[in-house]
């Protein structure tokens, strides 16, 4: 009986986070989420403390991920990045991350822009939206399927859906094989 209760508690903890839908983020929380600590070269960094206090919602919460997917369409990401396979901009599906695979790097890329054409979306999107989009973009290039990741759209199918880990299928290792033991897995 104690085991059952324990299991239920564990499931409760996981479940709550994964499916919760925060329709309005508290303004102080949003302001705090904007304060990432970037390294001087602006490539990577650390998310603010609150990001961990909230239990990294933008990587694990199904609703936030799916909002990210809608933002990907609404803000025209596909114009350069296509369905994730790239175009004018780099591909996400090939598993290569020019600025590292951490969500905070992707957040910085979207918020502040990058050289060679990536515009800054600061002022065009709210902090929460940028986090949602960053979390979603990360799932496009994920090597292992995440149950919280969005599924396919009601469109023509051009690649397997995010919850099928398309990057694992389409991953191009290039001439030198990668070492997954080096650095965090995206």
């Amino acid at each position: 009986m104690r085991i059952v209760v324990g299991l239920v508690c564990i499931v409760t903890l996981c479940g709550c986070q994964r499916e919760e839908r925060q329709l309005r983020l508290d303004p102080p929380a949003a302001a705090a989420l904007d304060k990432i600590a970037l390294m001087p070269n602006k490539i990577g960094g650390a998310p603010p403390q609150i990001y961990f206090a909230l239990d990294q919602p933008y990587e694990t919460n199904a609703y936030d991920l799916s909002q990210g997917k809608r933002l990907y369409t609404w803000f025209g990401c596909a114009a350069c990045h296509g369905d994730g396979q790239g175009g004018i901009g780099p591909s996400f599906l090939d598993g290569w991350w020019a600025y590292g695979p951490e969500t905070v790097s992707i957040f910085a890329s979207i918020r502040d822009g990058r050289p060679h054409g990536m515009p800054a979306f600061k002022g065009k999107m709210t902090t929460e939206q940028i986090w949602q989009l960053a979390g979603y973009v990360q799932t496009i290039g994920a090597y292992s399927a995440r149950t919280a990741a969005p599924s396919r759209n009601d469109d023509k199918q051009t690649r397997p859906a995010e919850n099928r880990a398309p990057a694992a299928i389409l991953f191009d290792e290039g001439p030198t094989p990668v070492h997954p033991d080096q650095g965090p897995t995206p």
């Binding site: 994964r18 499916e19 199904a62 609703y63 991920l65 799916s66 919280a148 599924s151 396919r152 009601d154």
Partner: peptide, 13 residues
């Protein structure tokens, strides 16, 4: 569907 389908109903609900 489509509101319960893959595009509009996130998560496992």
């Amino acid at each position: 569907v489509p509101l319960s389908g893959p595009q509009y109903a996130p998560g496992k609900r």
